[in-house]
Simulated scan of single mutants.
Amino acid sequence: MIEVKPADEKEIYQIITDAKLSRQKIGIIGFGKHLRREFKCDITLSTINLNNFEIKDNKVIADSGADVQKIREEAIQKNLLFPSIYDGSVGGLLALNEISSLSTAFGTPWDFTEWVDFITTFGKIRWRIVIGSQGLFGVITKATMKLYERPKKVYIYEKEIDDKKEFKFQIRKLATLKPLALLVEYDGNKKSFKIHASYTYEYELEGYTKDEGVPIISEVSDKNSYVIEIYDFIEDFLNIVDKVSPYYMYGIYGVNVVKVYVTDETLLKGFNYYSRNDAHPLFYKLKRIFDFYNIFA
Protein backbone atom coordinates (compact mmCIF):
# COMPACT_ATOMS: atom_id res chain seq x y z
CA MET A 1 0.00 0.00 0.00
CA ILE A 2 1.28 3.45 -0.95
CA GLU A 3 0.67 6.59 1.11
CA VAL A 4 0.54 9.92 -0.72
CA LYS A 5 0.41 13.39 0.79
CA PRO A 6 -0.74 15.86 -1.89
CA ALA A 7 -0.13 19.57 -1.34
CA ASP A 8 -3.04 20.93 -3.37
CA GLU A 9 -6.23 20.09 -5.26
CA LYS A 10 -4.42 19.66 -8.56
CA GLU A 11 -2.27 16.88 -7.11
CA ILE A 12 -5.34 15.23 -5.60
CA TYR A 13 -7.15 15.17 -8.91
CA GLN A 14 -4.07 13.71 -10.63
CA ILE A 15 -3.86 10.94 -8.01
CA ILE A 16 -7.55 10.15 -8.51
CA THR A 17 -7.17 10.13 -12.30
CA ASP A 18 -4.15 7.81 -12.15
CA ALA A 19 -5.98 5.49 -9.74
CA LYS A 20 -8.95 5.33 -12.10
CA LEU A 21 -6.75 4.38 -15.04
CA SER A 22 -4.84 1.75 -13.07
CA ARG A 23 -7.99 0.49 -11.29
CA GLN A 24 -6.56 1.11 -7.85
CA LYS A 25 -8.52 1.83 -4.70
CA ILE A 26 -8.02 5.06 -2.69
CA GLY A 27 -8.63 5.40 1.04
CA ILE A 28 -8.69 8.88 2.57
CA ILE A 29 -7.12 9.59 5.96
CA GLY A 30 -6.53 12.60 8.21
CA PHE A 31 -4.56 12.70 11.45
CA GLY A 32 -7.39 12.06 13.90
CA LYS A 33 -8.31 8.71 15.44
CA HIS A 34 -11.99 8.86 14.61
CA LEU A 35 -12.20 6.72 11.48
CA ARG A 36 -14.67 3.93 12.14
CA ARG A 37 -15.31 2.45 8.72
CA GLU A 38 -12.68 -0.11 7.79
CA PHE A 39 -11.46 -0.19 4.21
CA LYS A 40 -8.94 -1.99 2.03
CA CYS A 41 -7.09 0.13 -0.50
CA ASP A 42 -4.02 0.36 -2.70
CA ILE A 43 -3.37 4.05 -1.97
CA THR A 44 -3.96 5.99 1.23
CA LEU A 45 -4.39 9.69 0.53
CA SER A 46 -3.46 11.83 3.52
CA THR A 47 -4.70 15.43 3.77
CA ILE A 48 -2.04 16.35 6.33
CA ASN A 49 -0.35 18.88 3.98
CA LEU A 50 -3.58 20.73 3.28
CA ASN A 51 -3.54 22.48 6.64
CA ASN A 52 -4.13 26.21 6.14
CA PHE A 53 -7.03 28.15 7.62
CA GLU A 54 -8.13 31.76 8.02
CA ILE A 55 -10.63 33.30 10.43
CA LYS A 56 -12.48 36.27 9.02
CA ASP A 57 -15.91 37.88 9.48
CA ASN A 58 -17.06 35.32 12.08
CA LYS A 59 -16.21 32.44 9.74
CA VAL A 60 -13.31 30.11 9.19
CA ILE A 61 -12.15 29.07 5.72
CA ALA A 62 -10.12 25.92 6.24
CA ASP A 63 -8.33 23.22 4.27
CA SER A 64 -9.39 19.67 5.05
CA GLY A 65 -6.15 18.89 6.86
CA ALA A 66 -6.40 21.91 9.18
CA ASP A 67 -6.38 21.13 12.90
CA VAL A 68 -9.79 21.74 14.50
CA GLN A 69 -8.17 22.30 17.89
CA LYS A 70 -5.93 25.06 16.48
CA ILE A 71 -8.96 26.68 14.83
CA ARG A 72 -10.80 26.55 18.13
CA GLU A 73 -7.86 28.12 20.00
CA GLU A 74 -7.44 30.96 17.48
CA ALA A 75 -11.19 31.57 17.53
CA ILE A 76 -11.11 31.90 21.33
CA GLN A 77 -8.42 34.61 21.01
CA LYS A 78 -10.88 36.53 18.82
CA ASN A 79 -13.66 35.93 21.38
CA LEU A 80 -15.35 33.49 19.01
CA LEU A 81 -16.61 29.94 19.44
CA PHE A 82 -16.02 27.08 17.02
CA PRO A 83 -19.10 24.91 17.72
CA SER A 84 -17.46 21.51 18.06
CA ILE A 85 -15.24 19.68 20.55
CA TYR A 86 -13.76 17.44 17.84
CA ASP A 87 -9.98 16.90 18.08
CA GLY A 88 -8.98 15.87 14.56
CA SER A 89 -8.85 17.48 11.13
CA VAL A 90 -11.53 19.56 9.44
CA GLY A 91 -11.89 16.83 6.81
CA GLY A 92 -12.52 14.23 9.48
CA LEU A 93 -15.06 16.42 11.26
CA LEU A 94 -17.01 16.90 8.02
CA ALA A 95 -16.58 13.37 6.68
CA LEU A 96 -18.12 12.00 9.88
CA ASN A 97 -20.56 14.88 10.44
CA GLU A 98 -19.42 14.37 14.02
CA ILE A 99 -21.87 15.46 16.69
CA SER A 100 -20.79 16.92 20.00
CA SER A 101 -22.58 18.12 23.12
CA LEU A 102 -22.64 21.60 21.54
CA SER A 103 -24.87 20.22 18.78
CA THR A 104 -27.87 21.08 20.98
CA ALA A 105 -27.38 24.79 20.32
CA PHE A 106 -25.41 24.80 17.05
CA GLY A 107 -26.36 21.59 15.27
CA THR A 108 -24.02 19.17 13.54
CA PRO A 109 -21.24 20.21 11.12
CA TRP A 110 -23.89 20.04 8.38
CA ASP A 111 -25.70 22.92 10.09
CA PHE A 112 -22.77 25.28 10.68
CA THR A 113 -20.93 24.61 7.41
CA GLU A 114 -21.70 26.98 4.52
CA TRP A 115 -19.96 25.12 1.70
CA VAL A 116 -17.54 22.27 1.05
CA ASP A 117 -15.21 21.62 -1.88
CA PHE A 118 -14.45 18.00 -2.73
CA ILE A 119 -12.65 16.25 -5.57
CA THR A 120 -14.16 13.29 -7.43
CA THR A 121 -13.28 11.46 -10.64
CA PHE A 122 -15.34 14.16 -12.41
CA GLY A 123 -13.36 17.06 -10.92
CA LYS A 124 -14.09 19.56 -8.16
CA ILE A 125 -17.59 19.95 -6.77
CA ARG A 126 -18.86 22.50 -4.23
CA TRP A 127 -21.74 20.94 -2.33
CA ARG A 128 -22.51 20.14 1.30
CA ILE A 129 -23.89 16.72 0.32
CA VAL A 130 -20.43 15.25 0.99
CA ILE A 131 -20.74 15.97 4.75
CA GLY A 132 -21.09 12.63 6.53
CA SER A 133 -19.99 10.53 3.54
CA GLN A 134 -16.79 9.19 5.20
CA GLY A 135 -14.78 9.50 1.98
CA LEU A 136 -16.98 7.11 0.01
CA PHE A 137 -16.99 9.18 -3.16
CA GLY A 138 -14.60 12.11 -2.93
CA VAL A 139 -11.79 13.94 -1.15
CA ILE A 140 -12.86 16.95 0.92
CA THR A 141 -10.37 19.78 0.33
CA LYS A 142 -11.79 23.00 1.76
CA ALA A 143 -14.79 24.36 3.67
CA THR A 144 -16.23 27.49 5.19
CA MET A 145 -17.78 27.16 8.65
CA LYS A 146 -19.57 29.63 10.90
CA LEU A 147 -18.16 30.88 14.19
CA TYR A 148 -20.26 32.28 17.01
CA GLU A 149 -19.91 34.74 19.86
CA ARG A 150 -18.07 33.05 22.69
CA PRO A 151 -20.03 32.90 25.97
CA LYS A 152 -18.39 34.66 28.90
CA LYS A 153 -19.22 31.80 31.22
CA VAL A 154 -20.81 28.37 30.89
CA TYR A 155 -22.42 26.45 33.74
CA ILE A 156 -23.02 22.70 33.71
CA TYR A 157 -25.78 20.99 35.69
CA GLU A 158 -25.80 17.23 36.19
CA LYS A 159 -28.21 14.74 37.69
CA GLU A 160 -28.82 10.98 37.73
CA ILE A 161 -32.38 9.65 37.87
CA ASP A 162 -34.03 6.24 37.42
CA ASP A 163 -37.69 7.19 36.99
CA LYS A 164 -38.97 7.56 33.42
CA LYS A 165 -41.70 10.06 34.27
CA GLU A 166 -39.15 12.17 36.10
CA PHE A 167 -36.83 11.84 33.09
CA LYS A 168 -39.53 13.26 30.79
CA PHE A 169 -40.25 16.11 33.17
CA GLN A 170 -36.59 17.06 33.60
CA ILE A 171 -35.72 17.01 29.88
CA ARG A 172 -38.74 19.14 29.00
CA LYS A 173 -37.91 21.61 31.76
CA LEU A 174 -34.24 21.84 30.77
CA ALA A 175 -35.11 22.24 27.09
CA THR A 176 -37.34 25.26 27.77
CA LEU A 177 -34.33 27.03 29.32
CA LYS A 178 -32.55 26.90 25.93
CA PRO A 179 -29.42 24.90 26.81
CA LEU A 180 -26.09 25.31 25.09
CA ALA A 181 -25.65 21.56 25.50
CA LEU A 182 -27.97 18.80 26.68
CA LEU A 183 -26.45 15.33 26.79
CA VAL A 184 -28.43 12.33 28.03
CA GLU A 185 -26.91 8.94 28.86
CA TYR A 186 -28.56 5.65 29.73
CA ASP A 187 -26.72 3.06 31.82
CA GLY A 188 -28.28 -0.36 31.19
CA ASN A 189 -26.54 -1.96 34.16
CA LYS A 190 -27.90 0.58 36.64
CA LYS A 191 -31.08 1.22 34.60
CA SER A 192 -30.62 4.92 35.19
CA PHE A 193 -30.33 8.15 33.19
CA LYS A 194 -27.58 10.74 33.52
CA ILE A 195 -28.47 14.24 32.44
CA HIS A 196 -25.82 16.88 31.63
CA ALA A 197 -27.03 20.37 30.70
CA SER A 198 -24.95 23.51 30.06
CA TYR A 199 -26.16 27.12 30.05
CA THR A 200 -24.68 30.56 29.67
CA TYR A 201 -26.75 31.72 32.67
CA GLU A 202 -26.98 30.44 36.23
CA TYR A 203 -30.17 28.69 37.28
CA GLU A 204 -31.47 27.21 40.50
CA LEU A 205 -32.09 23.59 39.52
CA GLU A 206 -33.09 21.44 42.46
CA GLY A 207 -31.20 18.17 42.82
CA TYR A 208 -28.51 19.06 40.27
CA THR A 209 -24.82 19.48 40.90
CA LYS A 210 -23.34 22.62 39.37
CA ASP A 211 -19.92 23.33 37.88
CA GLU A 212 -18.45 25.19 34.91
CA GLY A 213 -18.04 23.81 31.39
CA VAL A 214 -19.78 21.57 28.89
CA PRO A 215 -20.26 17.78 28.95
CA ILE A 216 -17.82 15.65 26.99
CA ILE A 217 -18.90 12.51 25.16
CA SER A 218 -16.47 9.77 26.11
CA GLU A 219 -16.50 6.56 24.08
CA VAL A 220 -13.96 3.83 24.66
CA SER A 221 -14.87 1.66 21.68
CA ASP A 222 -17.22 1.48 18.71
CA LYS A 223 -17.71 -2.26 19.22
CA ASN A 224 -21.39 -3.27 19.32
CA SER A 225 -22.44 0.32 18.64
CA TYR A 226 -25.17 1.48 16.28
CA VAL A 227 -26.82 4.70 15.20
CA ILE A 228 -30.61 4.87 15.43
CA GLU A 229 -32.53 7.66 13.74
CA ILE A 230 -35.18 9.33 15.92
CA TYR A 231 -37.84 12.01 15.51
CA ASP A 232 -39.12 12.79 19.02
CA PHE A 233 -36.11 12.89 21.34
CA ILE A 234 -37.84 12.09 24.64
CA GLU A 235 -40.38 9.52 23.46
CA ASP A 236 -38.02 7.76 21.06
CA PHE A 237 -35.21 7.64 23.62
CA LEU A 238 -37.49 5.92 26.13
CA ASN A 239 -38.95 3.64 23.45
CA ILE A 240 -35.46 2.37 22.62
CA VAL A 241 -34.73 1.79 26.31
CA ASP A 242 -37.94 -0.24 26.68
CA LYS A 243 -37.65 -2.31 23.49
CA VAL A 244 -33.89 -2.74 23.14
CA SER A 245 -32.53 -2.59 26.70
CA PRO A 246 -29.09 -1.36 25.58
CA TYR A 247 -26.20 -1.67 27.97
CA TYR A 248 -25.31 1.93 27.10
CA MET A 249 -26.88 4.69 25.01
CA TYR A 250 -26.51 8.41 24.63
CA GLY A 251 -28.16 11.22 22.74
CA ILE A 252 -27.77 14.95 22.24
CA TYR A 253 -31.02 16.87 22.55
CA GLY A 254 -31.74 18.54 19.22
CA VAL A 255 -29.99 15.88 17.12
CA ASN A 256 -32.05 13.28 15.28
CA VAL A 257 -29.87 10.26 16.11
CA VAL A 258 -28.85 8.38 19.24
CA LYS A 259 -25.87 6.07 19.72
CA VAL A 260 -26.79 2.63 21.08
CA TYR A 261 -24.63 -0.21 22.39
CA VAL A 262 -26.09 -3.73 22.27
CA THR A 263 -24.60 -7.22 22.08
CA ASP A 264 -27.41 -8.56 19.87
CA GLU A 265 -28.10 -6.58 16.70
CA THR A 266 -31.43 -8.36 16.14
CA LEU A 267 -32.84 -6.33 19.04
CA LEU A 268 -32.76 -3.30 16.73
CA LYS A 269 -35.24 -4.80 14.28
CA GLY A 270 -37.98 -2.30 13.54
CA PHE A 271 -35.77 0.76 14.00
CA ASN A 272 -34.04 2.83 11.32
CA TYR A 273 -30.44 2.06 12.22
CA TYR A 274 -26.98 1.40 10.83
CA SER A 275 -23.64 0.38 12.26
CA ARG A 276 -21.62 3.17 13.83
CA ASN A 277 -18.70 1.93 11.73
CA ASP A 278 -20.55 2.78 8.52
CA ALA A 279 -21.82 5.90 6.83
CA HIS A 280 -25.55 6.50 6.48
CA PRO A 281 -27.02 4.16 3.79
CA LEU A 282 -27.86 7.23 1.68
CA PHE A 283 -24.17 7.79 0.95
CA TYR A 284 -23.76 4.31 -0.53
CA LYS A 285 -26.46 5.24 -3.04
CA LEU A 286 -24.73 8.55 -3.83
CA LYS A 287 -21.46 6.67 -4.30
CA ARG A 288 -22.92 5.02 -7.42
CA ILE A 289 -23.28 8.50 -8.93
CA PHE A 290 -20.18 10.37 -7.72
CA ASP A 291 -17.81 7.38 -7.76
CA PHE A 292 -18.96 5.74 -10.97
CA TYR A 293 -15.59 4.00 -11.35
CA ASN A 294 -15.65 2.74 -7.74
CA ILE A 295 -12.12 3.82 -6.84
CA PHE A 296 -12.83 5.17 -3.34
CA ALA A 297 -12.62 2.53 -0.63
Results as ranks from 00 to 15, higher is better:
Glu185Gln: 15
Val68Arg: 01
Tyr201Met: 09
Lys191Gln: 12
Ser46Pro: 03
Thr144Arg: 10
Phe283Lys: 15
Ile140Met: 06
Ala7Cys: 10
Tyr231Ile: 13
Ile12Val: 02
Val227Lys: 09
Leu81Met: 05
Lys223Val: 06
Ser198Arg: 06
Phe112Arg: 00
Lys146Tyr: 12
His34Asn: 12
His280Ser: 09
Lys210Gln: 06
Glu158Gly: 07
Glu9Lys: 15
Thr266Asp: 08
Ile252Cys: 02
Glu98Leu: 02
Tyr186Lys: 14
Glu206Val: 01
Leu238Pro: 02
Gly91Asn: 10
Lys124Asn: 15
Gln14Pro: 03
Phe233Trp: 05
Met145Thr: 02
Asn277Thr: 09
Arg72Ala: 15
Glu11Arg: 06
Leu45Tyr: 09
Glu3Asn: 05
Val184Trp: 00
Tyr13Val: 00
Ile2Gly: 02
Phe137Tyr: 15
Ile119Thr: 06
Ser22Met: 12
Asp162Trp: 09
Val116Met: 03
Lys191Tyr: 08
Gly27Pro: 11
Ala279Thr: 02
Leu94Pro: 01
Ile131Pro: 00
Leu93Met: 14
Gly30Trp: 02
Ala175Met: 08
Glu235Ala: 12
Tyr293Asn: 14
Ser46Lys: 04
Asn294Glu: 14
Ile61Gly: 02
Lys70Val: 01
Phe271Met: 04
Phe237Leu: 06
Lys40Val: 14
Lys165Thr: 13
Val262Thr: 12
Glu74Arg: 03
Phe290His: 07
Lys10Trp: 07
Ile28Thr: 07
Lys259Ala: 04
Leu238Gly: 00
Phe82Arg: 01
Thr176Met: 10
Pro215Met: 03
Asn239Gly: 05
Asn58His: 11
Ala75Phe: 01
